[in-house]
């Protein structure tokens, strides 16, 4: 049993950290997991993505072509990954940053205005957590509690006060409707 997830967006949107949280949570649940970033001469504002594989046996390829799920945080990522999500999979779209609907009829689509929700919560940095919540509601590859624990352990000391807000952001995302 293996689940593959790609998270993609602009550098600075928290793409890599959202993936790491998934990975930490999977480790917390004693699962096999790999996290691999697209690495290169990249910078804030450029495109960034990471692939997370969660499994209950030794993981083969950490590289993923057709993930069961993708979170796309901007339009270039929607353009790239919409077609690649496996049939029956889940696509979580940050509608704040795209100007077109998803066209795939054979996957579950969760469209979330994540920037607006994060801003309403009072911190734009919560965008990734809103989307992560949206993903986990449709594809419970790890429990929200494990993500919560991972956050607690890996948020730097100075950001620990943001834990409740992160939690709230995930819950907001999880309550967003999905289109099956």
């Amino acid at each position: 049993m293996q689940t593959e997830i790609i998270i993609a967006g602009f550098g600075g949107q928290g793409v890599l950290f959202a993936g790491q949280l998934l990975a930490y949570a999977a480790m917390e649940e004693d699962k096999a997991v790999t996290w691999i970033p697209s690495y290169g001469p990249e910078m804030r504002g450029g495109t960034a993505n990471c692939a997370v594989v969660v499994a209950d046996e030794e993981i083969g390829s950490p590289f993923v072509k057709h993930p069961q799920a993708a979170i796309v945080m901007n339009l270039p990522s929607l353009d790239k990954y919409e077609a690649l999500v496996a049939p029956g999979g889940v696509l979580v779209v940050n509608t704040s940053m795209v100007d077109r609907p998803c066209q795939r009829p054979d996957i579950t689509v969760v469209e979330i205005p994540a920037n607006e929700i994060a801003e309403r919560l009072g911190d734009r940095r919560m965008t990734n957590m809103v989307l992560l919540g949206g993903l986990l509601a449709q594809l419970p590859v790890v429990s929200m509690e494990a993500v919560d624990k991972a956050l607690k352990e890996h948020l730097p000391e100075r950001h620990q006060k943001l834990l409740p807000l992160n939690r709230q952001a995930m819950q907001e995302g999880a309550s967003q409707p999905a289109r099956v």
């Binding site: 990975a23 096999a32 997991v33 790999t34 996290w35 691999i36 970033p37 950490p62 590289f63």
Partner: peptide, 10 residues
Amino acid sequence: DGSLGQMMEP
């Protein structure tokens, strides 16, 4: 190779 260098795993 670079991917194992950059990859995170428990």
